[in-house]
Computed example of a mutant assay.
Amino acid sequence: MADTLSNSQIRFLRGMAHDLKPLMQIGNKGLTPAFSAELDAALEHHELVKVKVGGDDREARDQVIHAMADALRAHLVQRIGHTAVLYRPSKDKRTIVLPRA
């Protein structure tokens, strides 16, 4: 996560993520290495991913979401309730072109 996203880039990504369905869901086991590997592959392929995080404790969900973003070097675009939107540009084939900052 070398660069930070500008407000206009975040708005652009939130608009793109609006119609997306959550691709992955974190269960009771939390952020496991297997889940991280799957999410890493999903981010590489899609670049913009919605993830549903289970649990009733808001602080615990926030910790999991931030740990997930940090571990995968992804930007947290948006978090609403149990759903987080993550963005990371693909290394091989970039499909999302962000507006200029």
Rank of each mutant, 00 (worst) to 15 (best):
V64C: 03
H66S: 12
I26T: 00
Q63T: 11
K50Y: 12
M68R: 00
K50S: 09
D57I: 11
P89Q: 08
I26L: 15
H66D: 12
E38Q: 15
G30N: 09
I96R: 05
P22I: 05
N7E: 13
A17Q: 04
D19L: 12
T32V: 10
R73V: 07
A74W: 04
M1P: 02
R88E: 08
I10A: 03
P33V: 12
L43V: 03
D62S: 06
L39K: 02
L23E: 10
L31G: 01
L31P: 00
A74Q: 03
I26Q: 03
S90G: 11
N7W: 09
R94Q: 15
I80H: 14
V85A: 09
T4R: 06
V77D: 06
Q63K: 15
V51M: 05
A37F: 11
F35T: 01
G55A: 10
A34M: 10
G27W: 04
T95S: 14
E59A: 14
I80P: 00
D3G: 00
I80K: 14
A74G: 04
A69Y: 06
R73M: 07
G55D: 06
K50D: 08
L76S: 07
M16P: 00
M16W: 08
A42T: 06
T83K: 02
V51L: 07
H66K: 14
Q78W: 12
T32I: 11
A34P: 00
V53H: 01
S36M: 15
A41K: 12
L13D: 09
F12C: 03
L76T: 12
L31F: 09
P99D: 13
H45E: 15
H82W: 09
A17M: 07
Y87L: 04
V77S: 05
M1D: 07
D3M: 11
I65F: 08
A41R: 13
M24G: 04
